[in-house]
Design a protein around this nucleic acid. Sequence first.
DNA 1: CGTTGAACCTGTTTGC
DNA 2: TGCAAACAGGTTCAAC
Length: 283
Amino acid sequence: MPELPEVETVVRGLRQVLPGRGIAEVRLGKTDFIDDPAALERDLPGCRITDVRRWGKYIVLPLERDAGSGDSLRLIIHLGMTGRLATRKPDEPLAPHTHAIFVLDDGRELRYIDPRRFGRIALFSSAKFESAFARLGAEPLEVSEADFRRLLAGRRAMIKALLLNQHFLRGIGNIYADESLWRARLHPARLGARLSFADAHRLLEAIRHVLRAAIRLGGSSISDFVDANGLPGEFQLRHRVYDREGKGCFRCGATIRRVIVAGRSSYFCPRCQPAPRHRCRKA
DNA sequence: CGTTGAACCTGTTTGC
DNA sequence: TGCAAACAGGTTCAAC
């Protein structure tokens, strides 16, 4: 569910209601995906949420303590595969797998739901946040074409692996990697360093186009993604290759195939996205 | 540097 | 129908 467009959708929704709100109380369920549960319960009450930001696939809530002691905190939330984050009124029934509730000072609740618990919740000081998150790659919607070309240069990994690597670019996941590669007519097993100038140009254009369109439509709702208000996205209706094995390519009609690249299902059109002929390195 | 496979969890879909 | 296998939007780690 949650790649860059879905996280951005959630962030935009939460930004309408969270900034300025104080955290009154923290209630936790299962905590095996939380870095330091005791720290949340100890340090969060009394904090005020000043903003809602996105950093790759992370939701970042900058906090200030009303004592004004100077050391600001950042609550970071990663949705993993099945995480959901939304505000609810306290009388609304608790969804199954609700593992964290942040009670706000207006009586509403920010609830985190995650059946598989592949997500992550952690509290960082501003300084530790900077050092830990600066290591991630550039934002795909902000990186320049020149920088993108520089990133690709010398990378012997397959382009699909690079797109999924959050230290290469931050925020792209399996759906948007495949959708972008299809639009750019690049086979997922092509090597990054072997992409031509024109290939790189098309790929970055495709990434920008696909991510922007997905954000505009509120993300992709495969089975259960909903935004901060509980509404599903619509970009799944616009998927051109993802999860379309055996169906016709929207561009040329050839049969979409699925192969495993970088350990993940990768959908591509064998005609539009021709397989690379890697030079044989042995013997 | 790179790749692969497994692990972390639960739920849903698919196949025999 | 029933049960088991396969699969799922992500990340991390060990082993090669």
